[in-house]
Structures are given as C-alpha cells and as structure tokens.
Write a protein that binds this DNA or RNA. Structure first.
Lengths: 309, 309
DNA sequence: CTTTGTGCTTCAAAATTTGCAGCGCCATTT
DNA sequence: AAATGGCGCTGCAAATTTTGAAGCACAAAG
C-alpha cells in the first residue's frame, strides 16, 4: 500500500529509535528515510521526533501522531479484510495476546476449530502477561487480548469476562492429594512454586496471603507452567494454575484441587480489544467463537467439580 | 498532506461521480487522476468503482473504503488540531450541522461567546434538517450536529438531549393572543403555517394531529421561519416554533404561547457526534460549551413562562 | 447520424525520490 | 586529549514515478 509507506516508515523509526536502524529494517537508505521524515514533518507543520545523541525519539506531537498512524494502519487492514470477505475469499489474519495458561490447551483447540471452518485465516499468538498484553493492544500489535486480571481497563472494550478458581496442582501421591477440599494454608504448609508478580495468578495469591498470618515462602518462582508441572513431581511441592491451563483428565501423575473463593479470589479471564476499534471480519468472528467457548466453560468446571469428589 | 492525496482524490471522485469532473475540481488532468485510481485499485487488490456509461460509482468495496478514508481524513485533521493546541496556538475549526431554529439566536451567540475566548478558532455552520444532519455526520462533513428529533440514533453518540415545548407564534392582535393557555385545536381553527414533513417540529405536530378529530390544513407550508414570522403578521395566521428559535422579548409585534406536552409532544433537541469519533480539541470544547448552555436553558424557559403570565 | 461525454491508453516531459558519499556533531573510549 | 563510532543531515546525479497532451473506443443523447 503505497500511500501508507511514509506512515509505516515513521512507525518503524519510532520503534527502532534511530533513523539508520529503521532504514536498514525497511530496506532503504538512511538518507532517503531521513528526508521522508523531514518532508513529512514539514507538511505536517511540526516536528514529530526529537533528535538526541544516538538516535531519535517521538516528541509529544509524535506520540499523538503515532497513535493515529497505528490506528490507520490497523484500520486499513480491517477494510481490506472486509473487502476480501465481501468477495468471498474468506481470508484474514487474527492477532491475539494471551496469558500463559491459555497456551497449552484452550487456544490451540480454539484456533484449530476456527481454521477447520476458515482455512484461509492465519493466526499470530503472543504470550503476554497482563500488562504486556494491554501494551500490545495499545500499539495495535494484537487485535484481541485474553488475559487474567487485566490491570487498567480504561482504554479497552471488554468483550467478555468469566471467573476461574485457582487450582492447586500436586503429584498424585502428595499427602494433600488425599483431601477432597483443600485450603490455601494447607498448600503453603508444603513447599510451593508460584509465578512471578506480574502474572495474574500470583496477584490473586498475594491478595489471599495478605489476609493470612501464614506467609508465602516459595521454593521456586517460575513463569513457566511446564517447570511448575514437572517440579511438583520432583519435590512433592504444590503449584498453582487456572483450570483452563490444565488437562484435568489427561495426566495420571497429577492431581488438581480447586481453592474456594473465600480462600483465594477467583481470577477474571477477560477478552478485550482496543476501545472503539472495529475489528477485521476474521478477528471479530474469532472473538465471538472465543466468547461462546468461554461462556460454556463454567458447565465444564461444574462437571469437573463433581468428578473430583 | 501529500500521503493523503490519493485518498482525497478518491473522495472527490466518489462525490463528483465522474473522474473527469473530479479532476477538474482537484486541478489535475483526468488522465493522471484516472491512473491514480487504477493504481490504487491494483495495490488495494480490488476495484472500488464500478464504471458505467457517464461516470463511475462506488461499488460495495468502495463504500467500505470511503468510510475508512473519510474517517482517516477527519482523524488526521483532529491530530493536527491537537498538535496545534499542544504548541499553544489554540487554533482549530469546528463544523456543526444544526436545525433552522438554532440559527437565528442560539448558535450565533454561542459561537461569539466561544470565539471571544478562542479567537483562533473558526466555524462552519450548516443548516440541516434531521436526516441531512445525520448524513453530514456520517460523511464526516460535520463534527457535531444539534437537531430536533433525530431519526436514527444508531450510529451516533448522543452528547446531550434536552426537551423543548412547541410554541405557537402569532401577531399581538391575533384573537388567540388574549388567551393565556392555548390548545392545539384553537390554533388549527385559524389559518396556520407549518414546516414541511422533514422538519422536526412538523413531525411533532403530525403526531399530535393524528390523535385528534381535527385535521391540519395549513395555508402555507414553508421551511423558512422568517417566512412564517412575517406571514403571521399579514394574515393573522398561527405559526409554530421552538423557543430556542424565538426572541421572546425582542419582538413587540409577536406573541408566543407554549403548547402543553399533553397537546403536542416536547421536541428533543439533541447534540450528537459520529459514534466513537475523537473530536478535535476545538470541537470537543465547543460541544462542552453547547452542552452547558443547553442545560441552563430550562431555567430560562421557566423565567419566560412566569413573565408571560 | 452527429454530438457530447465517459474511462482508458500512449509517450515524452516534468517532478519527485533514491543512493552514494561526505559533513559536522556528540558521547564514549582509548 | 585524542580517537572512535554512531548519529542526523545534505549536495548531487541517477533512477523512478507522476504528469499532461492528445487520442481511442464506447455509449447515450440530440
């Protein structure tokens, strides 16, 4: 798209932090890029970059502009997607940022299901904690975000929000595995593995622990659920995870127990988009499918709950 | 703005209905314009105009695109306005579509008040009936619309809505001028002047008359309030207008009487903008001022009511 | 049948953009 | 203090793109 080239270049410069670096990324000469920036600033009527030793940075005017540019680039993509859909091609691309817990089971299944009906649609999936996911939306780098406990809801439209309890994860022969109803303080009595503070589940655990005399003393802090899952089989420790990230029936060596709401607050799994954006056809449909799937999750949990008794 | 030139040209062609006409408007050759359109369609991936004998017209894809284009052009204006405001220039432009009744007193006073504080801001005021005002918003030709009884609220954000009774307007020596409380059926017993159907006040009168045995039999149907105002002094007829369009104390030869809500429904004077748009600094501030002024109107009306007894 | 107006095409001229090389600047390193 | 390396910026000529003038084929109107 020729007429958007200058805008793309400005975006590239703002990301690279230097005209020369951006020029290399975009496969043109730094002098050409430099003059395009200068030319744009002239017709725009104000500088958008402040020059400093070692590169450039957006000035306040540039910050205002870059938001417009990213919106325009994304919106043009949306229009093209709608037009493609209009002509029956059913092509498109969906970019989604989501929490780690969504990655192993939920998202692959959802994408496979969607692609079974729309094979022309491709996906980008970004693992992002709750802050980073919101940054992605703001920068128009993801169309959707599906995260636990989003921090600043101000700039976003919430498409759906469902609650999920926190589950304790342990080896099948762990002493606690015998108990049907588990309290958080039981878990903290054993070695435990928790995620770092930026992760939603840790946020909830911190809230819970704040009201207790007992303190959290993790033997390991890890942002990889895979690590946690294997570690609890090594040391007979306890880990924590949301059920959407668990294969409840699939793992014979592990046991999962929901922690009550009065113990640890439920996590809010929230599907959101940038406020006011009109998503591409593919993204909007995929969001709908996600919403439907999430809405049917509670039944699933009830069933799991019964089975675990 | 160079990189928007192609988009502006497409907009011009869609409005002119012909490439050659648009070329003349935009001061370039038709061949150059033609090739820009062709070039754009190629990189866009689909035709956006359908060619027919005697000109071109947007196809469905083009309709989708033109909406994006107009949004983009308007948004770029907004960004520039914000940047100008950032650098302290306090310049800007406000474009507003409003009903005829707003034109004589309310809008001039409001604009003068605003410009007294922000002399760098200029205005475009378009007289539009309720349908046309909405069209203006959709086409991004007005930033704001202030109209009575808007028809399709779906695509717009309502910033404020206030009620105004319908007033009967007559000469001071009209027989009805002696009565303090007037009924609609009294008015219809005398010759009366009403606006055409597309005007909000007529819409309300039609609703009122639908519930009556008496019929409306206007001696004149005119969309000019000036016409009505002078005509009622010629034939001793009765006219109708909203109080915001009346200079209640200023005209010695005319008398105004509010019609009760049970007689004729109150008109909804609504300030709106295109859904989801971020207005320029000047437009947003002017909208705030309008909203404040409209909110203080009811007191004004009460005062008028007392005085007219 | 002629006239008028349309979108589109050809080709050379005009305008713009690009790449190369180099300048001056500044913070860091030597 | 000097050297270095990275940076934004600038002449200048080449490359590329855009433009204008003229004309073609076509369809509707007179």
């Amino acid at each position: 798209m020729r007429h958007l080239q200058t805008l793309k270049l400005i975006d590239a410069v703002s990301k690279a932090g230097s005209i020369r670096k951006a020029a290399e990324d975009m496969n043109i000469t730094s002098s050409a890029l430099n003059r395009r920036i200068l030319g744009f600033e002239e017709e725009f009527g104000a500088p958008i970059f402040e020059r400093l030793h070692g590169g450039v940075r957006l000035n306040p005017a540039g910050e205002l502009l870059i938001q417009h540019i990213r919106g325009q680039l994304a919106d043009m993509d949306r229009v093209r997607s709608q037009v493609a859909d209009l002509s029956g091609l059913r092509r498109g691309h969906v970019s989604i940022a989501c929490s780690q817990a969504i990655q192993p089971y939920f998202m692959p299944a959802q994408i496979a299901a969607y692609r079974a009906e729309h094979p022309g649609v491709s996906f980008s999936v970004h693992v992002r904690d709750r802050d980073a996911a919101e940054e992605d939306l703001r920068a128009f780098e993801s169309d959707l975000a599906l995260v636990f406990e989003p921090a600043h809801l101000g700039d976003f439209d919430v498409l759906l929000s469902v609650e999920q309890p926190v589950y304790a994860v342990m080896a099948r022969d762990h002493p606690l595995a015998a108990k049907e109803r588990l309290r958080l303080r039981d878990c903290l009595g054993y070695p435990h593995v928790v995620p770092p503070k930026r992760i939603g589940i840790r946020y909830l655990l911190d809230i819970a622990v704040a009201n207790m005399s007992q303190k959290m003393e993790p033997v390991a802090e890890a942002d990889s659920f895979e690590f946690m899952r294997h570690y609890v089989q090594q040391e007979r420790a306890v880990g924590f995870q949301f059920p959407i990230g668990l294969n409840i029936y699939g793992d014979e060596r592990l046991v999962f127990r929901a922690l009550g709401k009065e113990d640890v607050p439920y996590g809010n799994l929230t599907l959101m988009q940038m406020r006011g954006r009109t998503l591409s056809v593919a993204s909007a449909r995929f969001a709908n499918q996600l919403a439907a799937a999430l809405n049917s999750l509670p039944n699933e949990l009830v069933r799991i709950g019964r089975q675990s008794r």
